[in-house]
Design a protein around this nucleic acid. Structure first.
Length: 208
DNA sequence: CTCCCGATAT
DNA sequence: ATATCAGGAG
């Protein structure tokens, strides 16, 4: 069974296994999703979802992020880690949105990637989940790991993994696919202790 | 390549 | 003690 056949098989199996897969980050607007996704770098979604309700209660708008002090924002997001960089980037992001985009989150990949603290992965999350635009495939730590274990890509570079996935899966499946793979990565194919013995994908996994 | 960094599981 | 968590920038 080759790579393309494996991808097709997964596309049939994954929705049966994870029918309720969805964006695990809590958000009510494109801006809130941008903030939550920046905070999610090297941090669990569970932790981000403890921080953001308090954060958005104190800072309910892009304008309030542009006006808050570095020190106060750092204390609000401290438990997510990398709090100095994240606070600096989110404040600069808010200023850039107000200056260049009328305070709205842009819907173009290149515009999103130009924002401080927003890279390709975060940009793809926002486009797919806030706007329903499938510009590319999200490749985070889970999807990179599963793509290699499942034999969908031999690369470590997230951009090369994304290029492989885009060739293997139809565009309208990209957003759901990212949620299915992340769900499987959390529940079964964990980084440290993959549960191959009980894995429902093991029959088609070259790493099992 | 290194640095940023707290919380949690192993 | 150490690896890992919806990464990005210098």
């Amino acid at each position: 069974m080759n790579r393309k056949q494996r991808a097709t098989w997964l596309l049939g199996r994954l929705p049966e296994l994870y029918p309720d897969a969805h964006c695990a980050l809590l958000f009510r607007s494109p801006w809130e999703l941008l903030v939550a996704t920046v905070l999610s770098a090297q941090c669990t979604d569970k932790r981000v979802n403890l921080v953001t309700p308090v954060l958005f209660d104190r800072l309910p708008s892009v304008e309030s992020f542009a006006a808050v002090s570095q020190e106060e924002l750092e204390s609000l997001i401290h438990s997510t880690g990398f709090f100095r960089n994240k606070a600096k980037n989110l404040r600069a992001c808010a200023v850039a949105l107000l200056r260049d985009y009328g305070g709205e989150v842009p819907k173009e990949l290149s515009a999103l990637e130009s924002l401080p603290g927003v890279g390709r992965k975060t940009a793809n999350v926002i486009l797919g989940n806030a706007f329903g635009i499938n510009a590319g495939m999200v490749v985070d730590t889970h999807i990179g790991r599963l793509s290699r274990r499942l034999g969908l890509s031999g690369h470590n570079d997230p951009k090369k993994v994304e290029a492989d996935l885009i060739k293997l899966f139809p565009r309208d499946s990209w957003k759901d696919l990212s949620h299915w793979l992340i769900s499987h990565g959390r529940a079964v194919c964990a980084a440290r202790k993959p549960a191959c013995v009980s894995c429902p994908l093991a029959s088609h996994c070259p790493s099992a």
